[in-house]
């Protein structure tokens, strides 16, 4: 029976794949149905995932196994319930207490995290001696890296008008940023194409059996 159910699952998956691809022609009822199935299943999936992987191990299990030692957990539980009050318009303002805690924690943690990883560590990695590189290509590369980083930062400095030498330096920064965006775009295109290949692999392999693994 499991084998029959597996075949049914593959057929349903193939039909839904075609329903989504039908959007390439134009918006139509098949696409709309597949879209709503996707929304409903995603919402249900994340609901269950949150309960089993976040709330049960971090809140319910500690409270049920050793209530007195984890008494403090009642506070985030209460704030979580206050968060749900946002669904009731008359008392939705009480959710601000929970949001305040989340925002305060995020602000404090992000301050430390970004200062360390995105500012200090990145500046540290840029303050290198390019002439200590093992070969000419690496020396040129490291010089480019330093110039690109400094000029890129200058481009993002908007407190001074971009003109004269400052403007010229900022323009060099734009060139580096455009190369960076181009590389990122190339990678994104490749990722999407590989997903498309994956879909074709599913249709021609799992569904039709034309491609053998």
């Amino acid at each position: 029976m499991a084998l029959i159910m597996e075949r049914i699952g593959i057929w349903v998956g193939a039909i839904l794949t075609f329903a989504i691809f039908s959007f390439l022609y134009r918006d139509n009822p098949f696409y709309k149905i597949a879209e709503q199935i996707f929304i409903g299943i995603s919402a249900g999936y994340w609901f269950i995932y949150t309960i089993y992987n976040i709330l049960i191990p971090n809140l319910f299990t500690p409270l049920l196994t050793n209530f007195s030692a984890n008494l403090l957990l009642l506070l985030p539980a209460l704030l979580g319930i206050l968060m749900l009050c946002r669904l009731i318009p008359r008392i939705d303002w009480v959710s601000r207490y929970s949001i305040a805690l989340v925002v305060g924690t995020t602000a404090g943690l992000f301050f430390k995290r970004y200062l360390q990883s995105d500012v200090i560590n990145q500046m540290n990695a840029t303050m290198i001696n390019p002439f200590s590189a093992p070969d000419l290509a690496a020396t040129i590369g490291q010089l480019i890296l330093i110039i690109g980083t400094v000029t890129g930062i200058i481009y993002f400095f908007f407190s001074k008008k971009h003109e004269g030498v400052f403007g010229g330096t900022a323009r060099v920064g734009i060139f580096f940023l455009m190369i960076s965006f181009g590389a990122a775009f190339g990678y994104t295109v490749m990722a999407r194409i590989s997903l498309l290949i994956g879909r074709l692999d599913f249709l021609l392999g799992d569904w039709l059996g034309i491609i053998k693994p």
Binding site: F110, F111, Y114, L115, S117, D118, V119, Q122, M123, A125, T126, G141, Q142, I144, L145, I146, I147, G148, T149, V150, T151, G152, I153, Y155, F156, G173, F176, L177, M178, I179, S180, F181, A183, A184
Partner: peptide, 18 residues
């Protein structure tokens, strides 16, 4: 090198923004 330079400039400035 080229991509890292651009990304690093974005990261440092976005970090300062955060």
């Amino acid at each position: 090198y080229l991509n890292t330079a651009g990304q690093r400039a974005i990261m440092i400035c976005a970090g300062l923004g955060v």
